[in-house]
Design a protein around this nucleic acid. Structure first.
Lengths: 186, 186
DNA sequence: TCACGTGCTGACCGATCGGTCAAATAGGCT
DNA sequence: AGCCTATTTGACCGATCGGTCAGCACGTGA
């Protein structure tokens, strides 16, 4: 793998685990066994390095949210969205971790601002679908809880089951939340 | 209110909204209409300022988690815990926001390390109560989702209903998650 | 009147940050 | 050989950070 790509991967891992602000270009260079100046040769700036590292995940998540369809009325579409969403969360854990844990406090950084906007779109799509306060909360808890639980599991000590086990379990719980089913009471 | 207390409140609000690392002592001083040196007269260091600002909330949350009882077997205790927990979340929104969004990436800061430890204790208490992967996820999503949803609602654009409305709704949804009830299927 | 403790401040310090730049190096093509 | 491009680097820059310190203003009690 080229140094260019290595730097992007190392930076992403470090941004996610130690924080964007707390990760210096010098540290990234050290981890890659090169110099700070060489990092800035491959990426115009620290912000650009972050943007490049997050781009693939943001692109995919944006596509999923944009193609969300009429999630309000159509129950099938809600479930279809759910599977794609969970898969994306699992595939891009590090970026999800970044979005969930740091986009809130770094809105001046373009890549984080883009992530914020994405979360707003997602919230808006479900806001329309939601009626009562209880229902809104159900959606909020489902989406935020899933993303945060996943992001936090890597975090400390807690190491969860493998993805093949987490995926169906996550879908099950989120289905319960997203579709207060008629076959249950309610 | 004394300048000492003002500084603590201003710092807490700024730490929560802009981030601990991104908030300089100079900015806190400016917001309070005083000098950076005077901030450091009232608080020995930036870390101490954060610790003092978070202490009341951390104390209360720690007490709740420590007194959690046998949440595994006793359903009543689970619900009693839940109400106390939700009330604490609502009462200490700013600190919850700090814990949820920043403790992960600032483990070298004592106050955040303490918050991390608290989250680990909470997770452990429910880990014991959890059997299947699905059940573990249910607890994780309930706790993380509630905390994050609440913290994020302040964040951007989204302004939710008043607390009197959020409180019962939050309890309702979390009850569903924490107690996969026999009167429902399962 | 003097002394003293409290509150507060400007000037200053060393460290670190992101970023620039000119020079050195290396490798392929003619 | 010479040349061009890509890559890498150390030295350096201005800005900002958290924190220190000597000293100033002021109310109070002896």
């Amino acid at each position: 793998m080229s140094l260019h790509d290595q730097l992007r991967d190392i930076a992403l891992a470090e941004f996610a685990s130690a924080g964007y602000a707390a990760t210096s270009l010098q540290r990234i260079a050290d981890l890659a066994g090169t110099s700070k100046a060489s990092v800035l040769y491959h990426y115009a700036s620290k912000e650009q390095l972050l943007a490049d590292a997050m781009a693939p995940a943001l692109d995919e998540l944006t596509a999923i949210v944009r193609g969300i369809g009429d999630v309000a009325a159509d129950r099938g579409q809600r479930f279809a969205f759910l599977e794609r969403f969970v898969d994306a969360l699992l595939a891009h854990r590090q970026v999800v971790h970044l979005i969930v844990n740091q986009s809130a406090t770094q809105q001046d950084v373009p890549a984080f601002a883009r992530a914020q906007e994405l979360m707003r779109e997602l919230a808006a799509a479900f806001e329309l679908a939601a009626g009562s306060t209880v229902e809104k909360l159900r959606y909020g808890i489902a989406l935020a809880g899933a993303a945060y639980t996943l992001a936090a599991s890597d975090l400390l000590g807690l190491e969860g089951p493998p993805d093949e086990e987490v995926r169906p379990a996550l879908i099950t719980v989120m289905r319960e939340l997203l579709a207060p089913a008629p076959e249950l009471k309610d």
